[in-house]
Design a protein around this nucleic acid. Structure first.
Length: 483
RNA sequence: GGCCCAUUGGUCAAGCGGUUAAGACAUCGCCCUCUCACGGCGAAAACAUGGGUUCGAUUCCCGUAUGGGUCACCA
């Protein structure tokens, strides 16, 4: 690791890790690690009114389980700390005052009431720069009186500010559009608009990676760098993650689109690796021949990820595709890992006659997410009520009468079996097809309905029998015969 | 509303002046199979629009439309 390239992930502790945020963290991490650079975690907790207990831990644990390890951060330390903004309060005031001295910022004593009234009179007007030209004496006087104040950035009144974004290219805006935004709040804490610039500079961040919602406010930050005489960082704005609304429209992915926090998804049985793989592809695609590859581990991503391959247009988060990815990842897991993880999702009681491991393994290739285990396993535990018309099946030429015959034949055959595993059962049952001169499919169909009570099941008839055991198999066939 | 950004099938997307316009998810069909699934094969499905530039535009420029973002003592 070296500091030739330094990126950071700077979330505010909200209590959950939004999936869009996670993607920003991922890209930020990858941009640094592609060149063996430095990745920093910084906590932006300057909004004292929205502090959430334990929120910082959520961030850390998410980064830990997704393996987005940071080289510097609150708990790992580093030479540019502290890495929590509330612990850096004095630094910001110091730099704000420098800006006041150099004429790039000013004290503002306007009350919130005044601002509200201003807003009422003209909702689009913004701040009227009332305090921008207060004399030094007036300022000193107000300060001496202990009047609450904020510090505002003094924006240029004419001209245009532009910057080059690594993804979007040249972005600019006329300076008249820029508000004299607040740098330091009345409570002594800085605003995001100010402190992230100070920290990024002080921490040596070379690439500022964040969502494109900041695209239009970045000229203001660039101006701040200029005011201090600092070189501007490379800006890397990421296309937004969108969610599909009920009416078909799209908007920035948010809670109303469903489970969109990392922990929600994990609790719902999605694997961290699958989530990472999927979101890596939302807004980025490998170049060249790799463009058709879809499966990437974190290590793969470190190798192939480049800023040049990041897209500009917003991407709609597709739960279907995530589900598919997740299913693929579940299939690829080795049995033991899968079993131990799957058991965490067995939130129902399992009779001792049931072979749980076999049941779970039967499900391994047939679920998209672990939380599907419960519903898919239900019929193993208790025979659902079903109608005998279920036995009818055209493809295998099964009629209720034929099914009846099959079941009657099957009962004694199965009873005789001493070894009740898939192969033995299957071989024994084949005799029935021969005897009744019907397709084996017809035999299996009839029995599968009898032991499952379902038209669609994970696994075939004999697999199900093995799982539920001989006794239960015979009982269920008995139930069927009674229909 | 002002400013900014985007626009290839339903979704993610490749393409970076000349292609039969990839691939994946989802959908549908066929095959395989002890059902479904898995797997295999296949189908349907796209360059928003109007002008330029050019021998030639999905690719470059401008307008229009549509979508999105942003205009806080939130980040």
């Amino acid at each position: 690791m070296d500091r030739n390239i330094v990126t950071r992930f700077a979330p505010s502790p909200t209590g959950y890790m939004h999936i869009g945020n996670l993607r920003t963290a991922l890209y930020s991490f990858l941009i640094a690690k592609h060149q063996d650079g430095c990745f920093i975690l910084r906590i932006e907790d300057t909004d004292r009114e929205r502090l959430v207990e334990g929120a910082e831990d959520v961030i850390k644990s998410t980064l830990a389980t997704t393996k987005l390890t940071y080289d510097e951060g609150p708990d790992v330390g580093g030479e540019h700390g502290p890495y929590v903004q509330s612990q850096r309060k004095e630094i910001y005031m110091e730099y704000a005052k420098k800006l006041v001295e150099s004429g790039h910022a000013y004290y503002c004593f306007c009350t919130k009431e005044r601002l509200e009234q201003l807003h009422e009179e003209d909702a689009t007007g913004g701040y009227d720069r009332h305090c921008r030209n207060l004399s030094k004496e007036e300022v000193a006087e107000n300060l001496a009186k202990g009047l609450p104040f904020v510090i505002r950035q003094k924006m240029p009144l004419e001209g245009r500010t532009t910057y080059t974004d690594a993804v979007f290219g040249e972005i600019g805006c006329d300076n008249v559009e820029l508000q004299d935004q607040i740098l330091m709040k009345a409570d002594g804490y800085p605003t995001y608009n100010f402190c992230h610039v100070i920290d990024d500079y002080l921490m040596g961040v070379t690439h500022v990676v964040r969502g494109s919602e900041y695209l239009t406010s970045t000229p203001k930050y660039a101006l701040l760098y200029d005011s201090f005489g600092w070189p501007r960082p490379i800006y890397v704005h990421l296309p937004l993650l969108m969610g599909k609304n009920a009416d078909g429209s799209v908007s920035k992915l948010s809670k109303r689109h469903g489970a969109v926090s990392f922990q929600d998804l994990v609790a719902d049985g999605y694997l961290p690796e699958a989530i990472i793989n999927y979101i890596a592809l939302l807004g980025w695609c490998p170049k060249g021949e790799d463009a058709t590859t879809e499966f990437f581990s974190l290590e793969d991503l470190k190798k192939v990820f480049t800023i040049e391959a990041i897209n500009k247009s917003p991407a709609v988060f597709d739960f279907d595709k995530l589900l598919w990815f997740n299913g693929e990842y579940i299939k690829k897991m080795d049995k033991d890992t899968y079993l131990s993880l799957a058991k965490e999702f067995v939130n129902f009681s399992v009779p001792s006659s049931i072979q749980l491991d076999k049941l779970l393994l039967l499900l391994q290739g047939r679920i998209g997410k672990l939380s599907e285990i419960a519903e898919k396993a239900a019929f193993f535990l208790a025979l659902p009520d079903y109608d005998k018309s279920l036995f009818e099946n055209k493809k295998n030429k099964v009629t209720p009468d034929l099914a009846l015959a099959v079941l009657q034949e099957a009962l004694p055959l199965l009873e005789q079996l001493t070894v009740f595993d898939n192969d033995s059962i299957y071989n024994a049952l084949l005799q029935i097809a021969e005897k009744l001169s019907c397709k084996s499919g017809a035999v299996m169909w009839s029995l599968r309905i009898a032991v499952s009570g379902l038209a669609v099941t994970p696994g075939g008839a004999t697999e199900i029998m093995e799982v539920i055991g001989k006794e239960e198999t015979l009982r269920r066939i008995g139930v069927a015969l009674a229909k």
